[in-house]
């Protein structure tokens, strides 16, 4: 009755470990499913959501505001999946999308570069030089994505409960370590962690439904009582809270909504200059 997130770099056998852990525990193993759910719920093609969550920002890529919107959708879908419990997630940034939930075991799988290169050579039928170049390029892009999009360096061991070097430990032993750790009492759901996860899920769902109003909107929920923090300018200062309340109150699980507005000074100045 817990959740496991498996973070890894490419060709580190993280997905293989996640799948085996799910099989041993009888849990559902999810990665792409989260994107499919977000795509279905919010009507955005899966490919766009994939790019927003997997590819580093670039000049010709997704605009920053669109990326914030897509990430809000993926976060809401991710939280909905986590609420189902008994889940192993191996998609990006699982340890960052939801924080503070005590029955969520955050695992990081590392592998030595040489092993990753060898695995890539074998799987992609390419030379060592090509494999090394591609892996280093992927790592660089992934590092930028984590830093720019999620604001954290996912190689920081402090983000995880368990960090395993699969090159030293091996896949089977890694699976054994993860499955035995998740059974520890401290990773079992409690009234506190279940309520926290429910609050997070509701906050993420509301944010996803309001993100078009303000890409930096923040939502905090406590047992259905919701606080929304948004910014607007000019006439929006009066109209936006009304729209937020109206939309949020229609969502299942919402009992009350309090809106905290701040003025978007940048937008106001831009408006005065138009």
């Amino acid at each position: 009755m817990s959740i496991v997130t498996v973070s890894r770099r490419t060709y580190s056998r993280g997905k293989e470990i996640a799948e085996k852990v799910a099989e041993v525990l009888g849990y559902e193993c999810v990665g792409r499913e989260v994107l499919l759910l977000a795509s279905k719920e919010y009507g955005i093609p899966e490919e766009r959501l994939y790019k927003a969550t997997h590819e580093a920002p670039s000049f010709l890529g997704i605009t920053p505001n669109a990326r914030k919107r897509y990430i809000a959708y993926v976060k809401a879908a991710f939280a909905a999946y986590m609420l189902k419990d008994n889940v192993v997630y191996h998609g990006p940034a699982g340890e960052l999308l939801i924080q503070g939930v005590s029955h969520l075991l955050r695992v990081r799988i590392n592998a030595d570069l040489e092993d990753r290169v060898a695995l890539r050579m074998e799987r992609d039928k390419i030379t060592e030089k090509e494999a090394r170049k591609k892996i280093l390029r992927d790592d660089d892009k992934h590092g930028k994505l984590m830093k720019w999009v999620y604001g954290r360096d996912d190689t920081d061991a402090g983000l995880y409960d368990l960090v395993i070097n699969v090159s030293q430990i091996g896949v089977d032993k890694a699976v054994e370590i993860v499955t035995s750790t998740v059974k520890l009492k401290k990773f079992q759901p409690m009234a506190y962690s279940i309520r926290l996860l429910k609050n997070i899920e509701l906050s993420c769902r509301i944010a996803a439904h309001l993100i078009d109003l303000d890409p930096d909107i923040r939502v905090r929920s406590e047992s259905g009582n919701v606080h929304v923090y948004a910014k607007a300018s000019g006439r929006g200062m009066k109209r936006t809270p009304e729209i937020i309340k109206e939309r949020a109150m229609k969502l299942p699980g919402v009992k009350s909504v309090e809106v905290h507005m701040s003025e978007d000074l940048f937008e106001r100045i831009a408006g005065e200059m138009r």
């Binding site: 005590s102 520890l184 009492k185 401290k186 079992q188 409690m190 009234a191």
Partner: peptide, 12 residues
């Protein structure tokens, strides 16, 4: 929460 749980709390 984890400390309490690990030390044997029934719930938190």
């Amino acid at each position: 929460a984890r400390e309490a749980q690990a030390k044997g709390a029934f719930d938190f």
